[in-house]
Write a protein that binds this DNA or RNA. Structure first.
Length: 511
RNA sequence: GGGCCAUUAGCUCAGUCGGCAGAGCACUUGACUUUUAAUCAAGUUGUCCCGCGUUCGAAUCGCGGAUGGCUCACCA
């Protein structure tokens, strides 16, 4: 009975399964057919471009453009994708694009001979070519190569998107990112910038005496953050494993082991909602420094981000989505309690009990589901009323202990912890603690997390006994910091969506 | 999951009141030996996202569905 309605999935028009192979060619439009015919002709004449294994490239187009005076009159060879053709009978101008630039080539029939020229005229936009010739400047002043030899290095069998408007369909841009990179120059430069930013971050950390380490992506206990993990399975061991949500607990084991200053910059996986700021896999850097605390991490955060901005963009005053943001240190500092007082008008210093906190929430029109502690109430108010105002870089200090299970309590105030989050453009960019190193306290905090988990909170931490044993061997006082690398790159590249700074963002499969 | 919007040629997009499916780029043929969004002449290109309905007639109107975008909710 229940299956009857599903029959339409099998009968809805896929009757062509048995005749698909041979009808491919007929189904193609003219552009596809013509290009395949050109390839077939080349192959029949023993000139199959796909048999070529190597081309001797002496220069990149960027080098030639940047130092024309030294290349003027010299012979060079370049290679790249043919992106435009301006043919005028017995001579042609074309643009060849390589990674960092483009260069015009000038092909004349009496330079390469009538046979090679007529073959060249069959090249299509999108073909990969190698070109050898002499550098010169045209009458209109454009640096070019007068071609002595041109080689087809790969035939493009499909047309590129339109040259003037580029590729706009966002879905296609993400699914076929190579097309996006070919036709939208600003996309290519964004990803080149991403690479430079990450390199600058690593250089900064290395210069400060940190070592980069790699810890497991496959975890038996996913810890260090409040997030739902992805689950996978190892066949030989026959156990489920989790993809890591944070490297925190491994990195602190390394501090116990005496590595003192470590960082890891890599991919995290969180099985949660997707948005303009969230992708299921994303890059984060975590840093741990022995004998330091969260105040030291504040200084490190400011220095790191402002130094990278200065190096990559040449300034610490950036523009993000039309808003000026000043990354010049020092950044403003405010406790969460102060922020809530300022933006919500509620003074949590004057609130003693969870009941009073609940009343304060209700008076601000907030919904309360289940039991809410004083700290959770303050955090909720902070997120609701304060976060949106934190446009310029701002450290928010002293988070409630209930939502900070891995953080040292503030001396003299057991309700709060030595923790900050840093916000830029109302987004959380970083999160840092004075790390909790008391194994007995840690064990109790885990137990409280386990209780939350058992009462339905899928994001609460699991008990990690092995980590507690590591702490029992002695973790020095340590400062720890996590920085959302993708969000930082969004800021520095002025990108609206996280999908614009991930080459292949997670997509729902088609069909 | 809710709301709003979109889906038309390989790409970017028009398509009026329901009346033969359009443009630019790309492509094909021809002309052109310093062009550059080359130019000029001629030509080709369609599951109008899918299904059902209303109608003499649907790209256009109605209902249902798919995909995507934005947004709200969710989400350290």
């Amino acid at each position: 009975m229940t299956n009857v309605d599903n029959t339409n999935e099998n009968t809805s028009g896929h009757a062509s399964d048995n005749m698909e192979e041979n009808s491919d060619f007929q189904d193609m439009n003219e552009i596809l057919r013509v290009r395949r015919q050109k390839l077939a002709e080349l192959q029949e004449n023993g000139k199959d471009p796909f048999e070529i294994v190597k081309y001797d490239v002496t220069h990149k187009t960027r080098d030639i453009i940047d130092s024309f005076d030294t290349f003027d009159g010299q012979e060079v060879s370049i290679a790249g994708r043919l992106m435009s053709k301006r043919g005028m009978g017995k001579s042609s101008f074309c643009d060849v694009h390589d990674r960092d630039g483009k260069l015009q080539i000038y092909v004349q029939v009496n330079m390469i001979g009538p046979e090679a020229y007529s073959e060249f005229k069959k090249y299509d936009i999108g073909d990969m070519v190698g070109v050898k010739g002499e550098v010169f400047r045209t009458q209109k002043g454009e640096i070019s190569i007068k071609v002595k030899e041109v080689v087809l290095l790969a035939k493009s069998l499909r047309p590129l998107p339109e040259k003037w408007h580029g590729l706009k369909d966002t879905d296609m841009r993400y699914r076929q990112r190579y097309l996006d990179l070919i036709v939208n120059p600003e996309v290519k430069s964004t990803f080149i910038l991403r690479s430079k930013i990450i390199k600058a971050i690593r250089t900064f950390m290395d210069n400060r005496g940190f070592i980069e380490v790699d810890t497991p992506l496959l975890n038996t206990i996913p810890g260090g953050a409040a997030a739902r993990p992805f689950i996978t399975h190892h066949n030989t061991l026959d156990i489920d494993l989790y993809l890591r949500i944070s490297p925190e607990l491994y990195l602190k084991r390394l501090i116990v082991g005496g590595l003192e200053k470590v960082y890891e910059l890599g991919r995290m996986f969180r099985n949660e909602g997707m948005s303009v700021k969230h992708n299921p896999e994303f890059s984060m850097m975590e840093i741990y420094e022995a004998y330091n605390d969260y105040k030291g991490m504040m200084e490190l955060t400011e220095q790191l981000i402002s130094t990278v901005a200065q190096e990559i963009l040449g300034t610490t005053k950036i523009s993000y989505q039309g808003t000026e943001i000043d990354l010049t240190p020092p950044w403003s500092r405010m406790t969460m309690c102060e922020a809530v007082k300022k933006y919500a008008g509620v003074d949590f210093d004057a609130i003693a009990t969870a009941d009073e906190a609940k009343k304060a929430l209700i008076s601000k029109g907030l919904d309360i589901k289940g039991a809410v502690s004083k700290g959770e109430a303050m955090n909720l108010m902070f997120e609701t009323f304060a976060e949106e105002h934190l446009i310029q870089p701002t450290f928010i200090l002293d988070y409630p202990v209930e939502i900070s299970p891995l953080t040292k309590k503030k001396p003299g105030n057991p309700e709060l912890t030595e923790r900050f989050e840093v916000f830029i453009y109302a987004r959380e960019i970083g999160n840092a603690y004075s790390e909790l190193n008391d194994p007995i306290d840690q064990k109790e905090r885990f137990e409280r997390q386990v209780e939350k988990r058992e009462s339905g909170d899928e994001e609460a931490n699991m008990m990690d006994d092995d980590y507690v044993i590591a702490l029992e061997h002695g973790l020095p006082p340590t400062g720890g910091l996590g920085i959302g690398i993708d969000r930082l790159i969004m800021l520095l590249t002025d990108s609206y969506s996280i999908r614009d700074i991930l080459l292949f963002p997670t997509m729902k499969p088609r069909d």
